[in-house]
Structure formats: structure tokens, C-alpha cells
Design a protein around this nucleic acid. Structure first.
Lengths: 165, 165
DNA sequence: TCTATACTTGACTTGTTTACTCGGGTTTAT
DNA sequence: ATAAACCCGAGTAAACAAGTCAAGTATAGA
């Protein structure tokens, strides 16, 4: 699992498509205009999303993209995995004899961390984000993120001195 | 929060330092040998870690690095934030009038996802990883990751068709 | 029905940032 | 003085981000 601006752009764009799904296929030009992402980059991203069967394309005038599955079954993890380059585990390429003494400490360690991050992002669906976006009218409410269908309040902060920036 | 091989290498190296802390300063040459990470790259990474006061250096023969704080207070999030380049939020640079109609949907969305990932990684300390690494003798036990001092079993998998690779 | 045209996706190519390496230099204990 | 270690600069490769061109398709007009 890798996490860069590429994945962010892809998720944002997919959310835009989901938000405008009721009025037919969504053209990338509109997404570019609304989300301020360059059209060329969007075309590149949606090429990957289409090849991974997350969206389907409609060509010609009035065409555009629409989701290939229901928004409630499309997760953030799906999108990120589709567009981000796969991270290579480097040493110990598949094999388990890495250093010899304690065979690839890195692998197990990062695999488990990876898994937790993926699990988390796989619990957030596009439908969740759409709903969260549309319920944006009451700014006094606590921030809520839906996880696997159940709503979970999240107001605790990290106690370490990290500046999210 | 950004997540690339850079952060992985840094966490691996820091874990190696923590594992060999009992025999004085840990030389980067040894870390390079054991973890198969190039010495030059390690030097670059530890330059950042030192400037962020996560490690302290001892120069001269017999020198090396040792942790600046107790392993139980050094989190994975600390390490990653120290070495990874800060991610820029791109459009809507601090201001809240981004697209006009729904003022920067991206920002809130990704901020919350970011926060959850950081929260998670901030809950895993180097001491946790050291213990997990040393308890590696019984392979039949369920995989366990300690979170904020409390042990949490994690054997659920994502139900979506993501190949972690 | 045929054709021209406008609109959209798809592929190729070009800068810019980031990951990573290579060389030399500085400090310090022996 | 010498060797072992950290330190610091420039240089190379890859990925990100964006620009340009070609191909496909529905609609309008004759």
C-alpha cells in the first residue's frame, strides 16, 4: 500500500463522479473544473480505473464515466490500489530466506501494518463519503466516519507531537 | 501523511537499532548488512532522524546511533513523519474558498482519512515491534499488534478484492 | 440515409519532483 | 597516524504531473 497525492486525486475524482451520478455519465472536463485537477492527469487516472473495472466509459457527446459497481461496494482502498504503483518489498522477493538469521523481519512487520491500513481504507466506501459530503450542512456536529456500515465517532487525537500539515 | 518505501526503510532501520541497543551504539554498517539497505541511503535517513531528535549519534571508532528516547515512547508515526516529505494539500492552500460551491470537499475528506492512519501508526511503538519480533518463536499463534499498550487481536480480512502484493 | 461536426476517451510525449547512489570530507578513539 | 565511524555535497534513475495529438461516437443538417 502506497499513499501519495495520486491516490488522493483519484478518490476525490471518484467521489465527484459518484456525486453527479444521477444526471447520466460524468465528463472529465466537469470533474477537472470542479475539483481543480488537470484534465490530462484525470484522463490518465481514469484509464487505470477503467482497466481495473471500477468505472465504465461512454464515448461520444454526452458521454463520460459512471461507476461500474454500486457506490456502497466501492471502497477507498479499491481506488488507491488501482491507481498507485505497487510497492515492492525489495529484499526477500517472495522467498523467505532474507538475512538468514531471522528471515526477513521487515516483511512480516510491514505486512501487518500494511494490512491494518488497507483494512481501514477498505471499510470506507464511496457511498459513505457521498453521505458525509451531503450532510455537510450542520457544521456543529462531531466529525463522523462510517466504518463497515457502522458509524464510529472519532474525536480522539494522537498524543504524539505530529503535525499533520 | 505519506507512505512510501522511504518510511518503511526508516522504520526497519530504527527497529534494528532498537534490537541491538544493549551492546552500545549501533553502527550503520551493521544495519546495512543485516537489513540489506544501502549505507548511503541509511546515512541520509539517519540525518533526518537525528535532526528530528529521534536518535543521537556517537562519532569515531566504536560509534554509531542510539535512540534519543525510550523505545516505548517512539512511535512508527514519529519515524515516518520525520523522514517522509510533507504532503501538500494542493488546491485551497489554507483558505476555504476552493471551488466556491462546496468549499474544498477534498480537504475535509482526506484530512479525516489522514488522521485515522496517523492515529493508528501513532499507537504502535518501537517497543511493541521489538517485543513482537522477539516473540517470533511460536508461529502458530494469532498475529497480534499492540495498540496504545493494549493488545488487540487482528484476524479479520478485507472483504473487497484487493491484492495487497 | 449520408456526411460533417462537435464532444469525449485513449495513447504518446514532455517537464518537474522525489527516491536513491556515489564520491569525498570531518570527527574521534586507539 | 590511522582506521572506523558519521557527515555532506552532487549526480542518476524513476515516478509524478501535465501537455499534445490521434481515435471513436452520437447528433445535426441536407
Amino acid at each position: 500500500m502506497r499513499l501519495t497525492t495520486k491516490g488522493r486525486f483519484a478518490v476525490t475524482a471518484m467521489l465527484d463522479v459518484a456525486l453527479h451520478a444521477d444526471s447520466g455519465p460524468v465528463a472529465l472536463a466537469g470533474v477537472s473544473e470542479r475539483q481543480k485537477i488537470s484534465l490530462s492527469y484525470l484522463e490518465q487516472l481514469f484509464g487505470k480505473l477503467r482497466r481495473n473495472q471500477l468505472v465504465e466509459s461512454v464515448r461520444g457527446p454526452g458521454g463520460g464515466y459512471h461507476l461500474a459497481r454500486a457506490a456502497s461496494t466501492l471502497t477507498v482502498a479499491d481506488i488507491i490500489v488501482a491507481v498507485e504503483e505497487p510497492i515492492d518489498s525489495r529484499q526477500c522477493e517472495g522467498k523467505e530466506n532474507c538475512a538468514g538469521d531471522k528471515r526477513c523481519m521487515t516483511h512480516d512487520l510491514w505486512e501487518s501494518l500494511n494490512e491494518t491500513v488497507i483494512n481501514h481504507l477498505a471499510g470506507v466506501t464511496l457511498a459513505d463519503l457521498v453521505e458525509q459530503q451531503r450532510n455537510k450542512s450542520n457544521p456543529g456536529a462531531a466529525r463522523v466516519v462510517t466504518l463497515r456500515g457502522r458509524q464510529v465517532k472519532r474525536n480522539q487525537h494522537t498524543e504524539s507531537a505530529v503535525t499533520p500539515q
